[in-house]
Design a protein around this nucleic acid. Structure first.
Lengths: 238, 238
DNA sequence: ATTGTACGGTTGTCTGATAACCTTATATGC
DNA sequence: GCATATAAGGTTATCAGACAACCGTACAAT
């Protein structure tokens, strides 16, 4: 059998690439909402793969809400408003610009969350926050455990807003950022500055405890600015 | 005709049911993170379906980030923090508290986006923004077209930040919110106030054009506050 | 005009086989 | 003895072809 190198090279997961290719056709409007996609047979022949691969690709698009399938009829591009998920490929964050962009998105959310948490938190929230703080001070270095405690601290603030979406989005974003940091840089760089982080966390905690949203926002802004500069990011903050 | 009730009712998408069943095993902790799932052969035999169905189920779990597969090795349950997608069921937004929560999340993002867009936008961005504005003024009423133009306006601001994640997140959130509005209330309520919206949009546009981030942020804040009160939401805004 | 039926096309599922890949164990060369 | 190369077995990835379930339409029968 003769290989056809005009086709995409087999680097990564065939169905995913075909799914993103079809997905682009939809996003870019070359396939209009409601329009019927080519049949699986035709798609298979078009991409030069088997029907199994096409089916898996379409299944992925269906999970993302970009298409709907009806047995015996076909697959149809859905209206954009049926998309009910958002997705970040971790690989994208290896690129510095992308990483910085996500960090910049995180800023206003964390600051707002701090302000809301200052107003809305309960006594139980505060004690959970203190637990997370203790776990950071307990560990000597910026170990795996320290990173998890840092995540837990921010997560608890998001939870203290008592707004489910702040927890959902911030938890997701913070995890992605921390994961990118851990894979990209050696943890050693960060050991020396863990005391600074703890001090900043404490100042946030105190502002929260006194139910002062303005101070809580300022403390969080200061903390994130510090974290950004420690990561050599150049962010505009207002 | 004789029905065979011994079989499971073939009501809905075999792979989806199996995926949710396996997914529950993971969520409920019966399969620990990092643990290897049974092989596809065994799963197929266990559930009494073919390997194709099992594969499609596992592909769905992989899309949701609950498992990772390695060719030649197996499928493994991932830690929760490896989930790389975020999802909102539209049904949740029917509930007023949830809707208000999402709107509150949107506020700081839109405001920050306005500030960033004021600094980062290009001439091309501005002309696209004007296009969206014209489409709103052109239509007489708050029709389907008007809603789309409103979405396009906010979307263009997010794009003008030249930060891919602002576009990704804000586009997603704004779409969810607008869809919830359109399904919950009759459009008629909103026809009378379309002029106010246009005026506020214009003020945002002018602040952007003069590259004044502070004014842009204030204009956006004012606009969103107005929109919130028109929807009878009670939000804390700082 | 309404109902029934046959037909072609499409997705859903099944079966079996081959390729690509990983892990482990064994053999080989030094 | 030790490191490297090779072989073997198991698992996922992909392929190929078939049948089942289902849909829409056209046409015949009443």
């Amino acid at each position: 059998m003769v290989m056809d190198f005009s086709q995409i090279r087999r680097s990564e997961h065939l169905p995913a690439r075909i799914a993103s290719q079809i997905g682009r056709e939809i996003s870019d409007g070359r396939i209009i909402a409601g329009e019927k996609l080519p049949t699986e047979h035709i798609l298979a022949k078009t991409f030069g793969v088997s029907r199994s691969v096409v089916r898996e690709a379409i299944a992925q698009l269906r999970n993302e809400g970009l298409v709907e399938t009806r047995q015996g009829v076909g697959a149809f591009a859905t209206d954009i408003e049926h998309r009910h998920s958002i997705r970040i490929e971790q690989g994208n964050l290896a690129d510095r610009v992308s990483f910085q962009s996500l960090f910049q998105l995180r800023l206003p959310l964390e600051i707002e969350a701090a302000g809301l948490a200052a107003v809305n938190h309960t006594a139980e929230d505060l004690s959970k926050l203190d637990e997370a703080l203790e776990q950071m001070t307990g560990g000597e270095k910026w170990t795996e455990k320290g990173v998890l405690a840092d995540l837990a601290f921010h997560r608890q603030i998001a939870a203290s807003t008592h707004n489910e979406y702040f927890l959902l989005f911030l938890g997701f974003i913070a995890e992605r950022i921390h994961l990118a940091i851990n894979t990209a840089r050696e943890a050693a760089v960060l050991t020396e500055i863990v005391e600074v982080t703890i001090a900043e966390h404490l100042s946030i905690r105190d502002a929260l405890a006194s139910r002062d949203p303005i101070r809580a926002r300022e403390a969080m802004r200061h903390h994130l600015n510090g974290a950004a500069s420690r990561l050599n990011l150049q962010l505009k903050v207002y």
